[in-house]
């Protein structure tokens, strides 16, 4: 019974993190927040890998005390391979996250917004402008016919505490 409960708690936690992260990536419109959701999904995947290597009544894969002299030990140990993989995965994750944030800074510098739909909007307008095509999104088009409602540009970057 307890084993079953631990099973559901651990796997439920890992899967919950993955689901929350993916839903965040899909639904959020602020690109800064999308990176945070991506970090959460990555944490869930790491937890899943570590759970896969877990064994009951096992100790950490580090030899201490008497185990150092009496090898091979009789004590069961958890699988070290997933742990080594997760170890590298976490460090890579923070590097990739920094790269993504640098790109977000670049996007904000060029488009002055963090809203995904607004960025898409302005990017299309830029492409149309530079290729000399009269844009579908330009002022010739009646305002009501646009495919998307006019997204908010105000308060996209609320930092909290200074409102």
């Amino acid at each position: 019974m307890t084993t079953n409960l631990i099973h559901w708690l651990l796997y439920g936690g890992a899967m919950g993190l993955i689901v929350i992260g993916i839903v965040g990536v899909v639904t959020l419109t602020n690109i800064f927040r999308i990176i945070l959701a991506l970090v959460i999904a990555e944490a869930g995947a790491n937890l899943l890998l570590v759970i896969a290597g877990y064994r009951f009544d096992a100790i950490a894969p580090i030899l201490t005390g008497q185990a150092l002299s009496a090898m091979p030990t009789t004590q069961i140990m958890v699988d070290p391979v997933p742990q080594a993989m997760v170890l590298t995965s976490i460090v890579i994750g923070v590097g990739v996250q920094a790269l993504a944030l640098a790109l977000v800074l670049k996007v904000y510098k060029n488009y002055q917004t963090l809203d995904l739909r607004e960025i898409h909007h302005r990017m299309l307008a830029d492409i149309d402008h530079s290729s000399g095509v009269i844009s579908l999104l330009s002022e010739e088009q009646p305002k009501g016919e646009r495919p998307l409602p006019e997204p908010e540009t105000k308060n996209v970057l609320n930092s909290g505490g200074e409102k």
């Binding site: 970090v39 759970i51 877990y54 894969p61 958890v78």
Partner: peptide, 22 residues
């Protein structure tokens, strides 16, 4: 889960460095 190495990395990187970068 008996993974002290991973726990150390997650504590240092995930909750320290990552939030500083953000």
């Amino acid at each position: 889960l008996q993974a002290p190495d991973v726990a150390m990395t997650e504590a240092v990187v995930g909750s320290g460095l990552s939030s500083v970068i953000l």
